[in-house]
């Protein structure tokens, strides 16, 4: 259907890179999200304030602006520090690291909200039972809260993942060879931009559709113990 003029493998490479960026940023954002949720629910006022500030700022700034800030600003910052330590040659910020850390940081804020709600949804009695058994707080979190919050977190987590995949398209702007940029290069060479961007769009549709299917399966799997009405 699509004549890719031999650029198929190059687009595939870009697709794999996009998936790498998505998965690594997902891991970062999940860790940040759990940390943020625990901070929001903790008794400490400063921790609460810090996590509140984090989620508020992220929701106020577009992803692209943050990414450009990290990419260009990080470059200046690292070189200033390096020259202070007497290192003279120029350091380039790796766009992969800039992209992954920005996306992870942004979605960490959304994950914080998701996990906060999920932790709150775990039955209080379960946690009380845990502490009645003399479990420490970390043990309660690991054995009781964490396994049960997964069910409540999955729908929000899935939504965040679907948005995250689409956000990875932005890394092409800071020069990472993901599928959007590969398509752009191929389009420039063949003068067939519509074909190549359509292929990329279909790739995204396939990835999101497969994700939706897997998430449905996981949701069913984690709701096995719940009686359906």
């Amino acid at each position: 259907m699509f004549n890719l003029h031999g650029y198929g493998p190059s687009i595939l490479e870009g697709t794999i890179l996009s998936l790498e960026v998505s998965l690594i940023s997902l891991a970062i954002s999940t860790l940040l999200g759990i940390a943020g949720a625990l901070a929001k629910l903790s008794g400490s006022r400063s921790l609460k304030f810090a996590s509140q500030l984090y989620t508020t700022i992220i929701r106020g700034i577009p992803d692209l602006v943050l990414m450009l800030l990290v990419f260009f600003g990080g470059q200046v910052f690292i070189n200033q520090i390096a020259s202070r330590f007497g290192y003279d040659s120029y350091i380039d910020v790796n766009p992969f690291i800039a992209g992954v850390s920005t996306i992870g940081f942004i979605f960490g804020a959304y994950m914080t909200e998701t996990f906060r709600g999920a932790i709150l949804a775990v039955n209080r009695g379960q946690i009380e039972a845990g502490s009645a058994y003399g479990m420490s707080r970390t043990l309660i979190f690991r054995r009781i809260t964490l396994p049960q919050m997964v069910r409540h977190a999955l729908p929000g987590f899935g939504n965040n993942w679907l948005v995250l995949i689409k956000t990875t398209a932005l890394v092409s702007i800071i020069g990472l060879d993901d599928m959007v940029r590969k398509a752009g290069l191929a389009a420039g060479a063949t003068r067939k931009p519509f074909t190549f961007y359509l292929v990329v769009a279909i790739n995204y549709l396939i990835i999101t559709s497969v994700s939706v299917y897997l998430l449905k399966y996981l949701e069913r799997r984690y709701s096995v113990g719940v009686r359906e009405i």
Binding site: K166, R191, L198, Y204
Partner: peptide, 23 residues
């Protein structure tokens, strides 16, 4: 809805801006 919610806005914009010139 499926197409526009399943693909990145950036790609949609490129399809319109660069893509339509192909035809």
């Amino acid at each position: 809805i499926y197409f526009f919610r399943g693909t990145p806005l950036l790609v949609q914009m490129f399809l319109v801006y660069y893509g339509f010139g192909q035809f």
